[in-house]
Design a protein around this nucleic acid. Sequence first.
DNA 1: TGGTATTTTGTAATTAAATTACATTTTATT
DNA 2: AATAAAATGTAATTTAATTACAAAATACCA
Lengths: 282, 282
Amino acid sequence: MTLLEQLQLELAGLSKSERKVGEMILASPEATLHKSIAMLAKEADVSEPTVNRFCRTMGAKGYPDFKLQLAQSIARGTPYVNRHVEQNDSTQGLVEKIIESTMASLNITRASLDIAAMEKTIEALTRSHRISFFGLGASASVAHDAHNKFLRFATPVQFSDDVLMQKMAAINATKNDVMVFVSHTGRTKALCEVAAIARQSGATVIGITSTESPLAEECSLVLATHVPEDTDVYMPMASRIAQLVLVDVLVTGFTLKQGPELQEKLRLIKATLRDSRYEKRT
Amino acid sequence: MTLLEQLQLELAGLSKSERKVGEMILASPEATLHKSIAMLAKEADVSEPTVNRFCRTMGAKGYPDFKLQLAQSIARGTPYVNRHVEQNDSTQGLVEKIIESTMASLNITRASLDIAAMEKTIEALTRSHRISFFGLGASASVAHDAHNKFLRFATPVQFSDDVLMQKMAAINATKNDVMVFVSHTGRTKALCEVAAIARQSGATVIGITSTESPLAEECSLVLATHVPEDTDVYMPMASRIAQLVLVDVLVTGFTLKQGPELQEKLRLIKATLRDSRYEKRT
DNA sequence: TGGTATTTTGTAATTAAATTACATTTTATT
DNA sequence: AATAAAATGTAATTTAATTACAAAATACCA
């Protein structure tokens, strides 16, 4: 947990004056970094020792130490909510904001990921005789990506972003099949139906989606990516990245499970592909 | 660029004593945070004002200010090199490492991105009468993703991961076309050929690829993502993420250029899509 | 409700830290 | 080898942070 989150949480439990200090800091964390203890005290309308006591309450050794922790906390995740893109942002600002919120969502994913489910998924993929990746609309590209990555192994893989094809595949699935469904919201009716069919066929159904969604309920294993997002105007972008990273982890885990003999094979594939490339002049 | 990288760079240009200070800090950046100017001076075997001058040389207002910047710099990117995945990593470790290196590559992208090229690309897309996204193999999913995102606008969009289709499209392109080519290495022969054709047809050719690649030379604009990667065994994963973020920036910039009337339309699309979803129970 | 105990807050004094001004040393240059 | 310029250090000064203690506010109990 970051310092700011912790502060937000403990705010209610603080004494009146210390709370004033806390609110002041939460109001503009970055500005606080450039304030001396005297300035902050004056602005929060409390005495300097109060600020000092506040810092100690928050677990810091003193005011300078608190500022250091604050600086790190700010630098790490996105301060609060995602900084929103605004109409008259510069391109530079756009880049900063988008990258920042992407990184924030990665942080959330890291913190909230269910490792056990991840391990079981890798297990299941390893045992599987055939792997399928399904997604619709925006999530299709994640499934597509996963498909590409798994193409390099011996296990047959398929991918589809077409509901009818997906249904047929689901109907024909057996208990040796692993079917991975990608959906940001987990509320796309068509995809849920396919997942239900897959489950009835006895396949291992895995969801890369948000928890507590209809899709999640059809799944034996859920890899959750509950990234809050302003779904109003801009599309779910950060969450896509989180999904892709999960796919990366799956592939990597899968690769490692195969042991060294496979890695030799991977090198072979690389070498083969090299022929279709222009050499790098050194 | 982070403070530590900058320090590494400027180290040679510093005077003897200031360099001692710099080396001391590079040796253990985190430890420095808990040192007073006196302690640091003593350990580096210089006087206190030298440390102070060092801080000013590095662009800080003074020692405390320098420490704050240092704290942020440490908190941000992955400390130094990418940590590599190893055979007997735990799943937890896998997740950590992959997310960390992804974040590191995002940081690099942020720092090295050519903002001017980005702006020109957004301009070009805005003026364009038709937009195409092409990629092969692993990069196809990025192109696919871009296609999805641009589908929401009035400008016609197309996507292909098939060389023949791409060639046909390239032949039929006009100067009102913008064609975006995605390729990690920029060395896939087939894609370079298509880009060459597109250029001959008069289209604006844009590359999301690495600089100094054959593909880049065919492009009017290059959005570079030179992410170093151990291409040996594991696939280029982090770079994919960087490419996707670039696409995100493009879409967002494009959206903002459209002005408010479009945002209304986007809401409409959202509302329409909602019918194909299960409602969220509140 | 009034009085006491406890907690909270502020004032003033103290200590610690950082900065500045200036002197000295070192290094480069002719 | 002498001088100018740069680099570094010493000591004084200023600024910031902390501590000790007193005053005010709040809670508690008869």
